[in-house]
């Protein structure tokens, strides 16, 4: 069965985590287009199609997998800007963090995160978590209608 795959934006500064994530998604056979950005500003550049992403195809990602602890601009700041922009605020955001700290957890939801996932230490658990996220947001969930551009 051919699944219609939507683009996933992965905001993750750690190459290892990114690799593990991609590995997990790959294991689930999510044939997809996964864009990866390495910090907060890159994330926004991608979303606004500017800088190095000026020429990327039009269209918002189906979901943003957002790491909180990133250089330059952290995930919470990205989240704040996204949710305050009408163009971006409907994009589902899944916060993925190593932190169980309440302040991150609470703040993320207050800023409008759609989900909050603590990255499990055990690899198989990590793989399961990513797989399920990918399956849900990229396959099952119906993203909001694409706003007209122009």
């Amino acid at each position: 069965m051919m699944i219609t795959v939507k683009r996933i934006l992965l905001a993750e500064d750690s190459d290892r985590d990114a690799e593990l994530t991609l590995e997990a998604l790959a294991q689930y056979n999510v044939i997809n287009e996964i864009a990866r950005v390495r910090d907060g500003s890159e994330t926004l550049d991608y979303l606004y199609r500017r800088g190095q992403f000026v020429s990327r195809p039009v269209g918002n990602p189906a979901v943003v997998l957002l790491d909180l602890k990133m250089p330059k601009m952290d995930g919470l700041e990205v989240l704040r800007q996204m949710k305050s922009d009408p163009q971006l605020r409907l994009i589902p955001v899944v916060v993925m963090s190593s932190s169980r700290e309440e302040q991150d957890h609470l703040m993320s939801y207050e800023l409008g995160a759609n989900a909050y996932v603590v990255k499990p230490v055990k690899f198989n658990e990590f793989v399961n978590a990513v797989k399920q996220i990918g399956a849900f947001w990229a396959l099952i969930n119906e993203p909001p209608p694409e706003p007209h551009v122009g």
Partner: peptide, 18 residues
């Protein structure tokens, strides 16, 4: 501790599995 120590552990674990 919670953030920075856990990440390397995860990585160790992940790569061992892989």
């Amino acid at each position: 501790v919670s953030h920075d120590l856990r990440a390397p552990l995860r990585h160790v674990h992940g790569y061992v599995e892989m």
